[in-house]
Amino acid sequence: MGLFRRISIGFGLARRSGRVLRAHPNLLAFPLLGGLAGLAFVMTVFGGLFVADLGSGVVMYATLFVVYVVETFIASFFTAALVAATRETFRGEEPTVRASLAIAWEKRWQLLAWSVIAAVVGVIIRGIEESSEIGGTILAAVFSFAWGVMTYFIVPVIVFEEPSITGMFKQSGRTIKRTWGESLGTLSAISIVTVLLVLGGLGVAVVTFLTVGSTGLPGLVATVVIGGGAVLLAFLVGQALTGVAKTALYVYATDEEAPEFFEDMDFSQLGGGSQRSAGMAGGRI
């Protein structure tokens, strides 16, 4: 299956994920909460770093490790809540923010273990990147890409399974093998959609500025609030679409059944050649 076909399927997944968001807009709460928590942590950390001289070596890498652990845990925790809520929508139920966060909290130790491992890898990649100017940067980029691919389904595995530490990586790896093209196609398609939404938000900011910018400070405030809100919404939608589509891919790859909102999606080409569901959806995208 060609690249453009993969991206086309990715757009199909993104469009159907949009159906889920329209039916359950409260799913946007999870990327919003995650973003606010991450922002609060980053501001706290950089506030401390501003008055501290870390120098280099062990202290710097130890600080990076702590930052990576906390940031990864925050992102994974709220992604886990989004994944759990999305699964409820696939079952025809109405998810609540509180119940979904409770499910993520039940998985806190697995999420913490994943965050620690991801932080170790992040520090290693940073070390490789700084080992030399060009070679280190290229090697770090390749390593980072491979790591991202291998761990693409880590959070759904943690939420839906009871894996060991090694089991979560094995299950994520098996799932990415079965959905390789669709996963990358979906990521590309949703990235394009997010960029378009952000550009739309910037367009709103420009229109607002041209309309009321001449009014001085009130016009500037209105431009920042309206334009900034539009851009923020674009990012939230992009994050939510990614979580919903990833959950849909994982559910099909493990259950071999198209979830609700995706019944008209042809999943028969998962993994680039599997015909397990050849009778589904008549090849529609």
Rank of each mutant, 00 (worst) to 15 (best):
T96W: 10
L111R: 02
V70S: 10
K107Q: 15
Y68W: 06
L36R: 12
F65R: 03
Q110W: 10
V42G: 03
S76T: 09
E71F: 13
T63N: 09
A52W: 12
G48S: 13
A40Y: 02
A84R: 03
M60H: 10
I74K: 02
L36Q: 07
W109E: 14
E106N: 11
E93M: 07
W109I: 15
E106C: 07
A84P: 13
R98Q: 12
V67N: 01
A37W: 06
F50C: 06
Y68A: 08
I74V: 11
T72H: 08
V66Q: 00
E106G: 09
A62W: 02
L36F: 06
R87G: 14
S76H: 13
A104M: 13
L82T: 11
V59F: 15
L101C: 07
T63I: 04
E88A: 14
W105V: 07
F78S: 00
F77A: 02
L82I: 14
A102E: 10
A52Q: 04
V58E: 09
F65V: 04
T86V: 05
T63L: 01
A85T: 11
A52I: 09
K107P: 12
F50M: 11
V67H: 09
E71W: 02
W109M: 12
V66F: 09
V97I: 14
M60G: 11
L82V: 10
F41L: 10
V45P: 00
T63M: 04
W105F: 13
V83S: 06
F46P: 01
A40C: 05
Q110T: 10
F46R: 06
A62L: 15
A99M: 06
L64R: 00
V97N: 04
S100W: 05
E93V: 01
I74L: 02
Y61A: 04
R91P: 06
F50L: 10
G55F: 05
L82P: 07
T72P: 07
E71K: 00
S76E: 01
V67T: 01
L64M: 15
F50G: 01
A81L: 02
F41C: 02
V83G: 07
V97Y: 12
F90L: 08
A80G: 12
E106H: 13
V51D: 06
E94S: 14
F41G: 04
R98T: 03
P95M: 11
V70A: 06
L36V: 14
G55T: 07
L101G: 05
E106T: 13
S100Q: 03
F46Q: 14
L54K: 08
W109C: 01
A81F: 01
M60L: 15
T96A: 12
E88D: 15
M43C: 00
D53K: 01
F90N: 09
S76P: 08
L39G: 14
A75H: 05
V83M: 02
A62V: 14
A75E: 10
T79Y: 01
E88V: 14
L49M: 07
T79I: 05
K107F: 09
T86Y: 07
A102C: 11
V66L: 11
G92P: 03
Y68D: 02
R91M: 10
T63G: 11
V59M: 06
A85N: 04
M43Y: 10
W109H: 11
T86Q: 00
G92V: 03
L111Q: 13
V59Q: 06
F90D: 11
E94F: 05
S56C: 06
V83T: 14
V51R: 15
A81M: 03
L111H: 07
A85L: 10
P95G: 04
F46G: 08
F41Y: 14
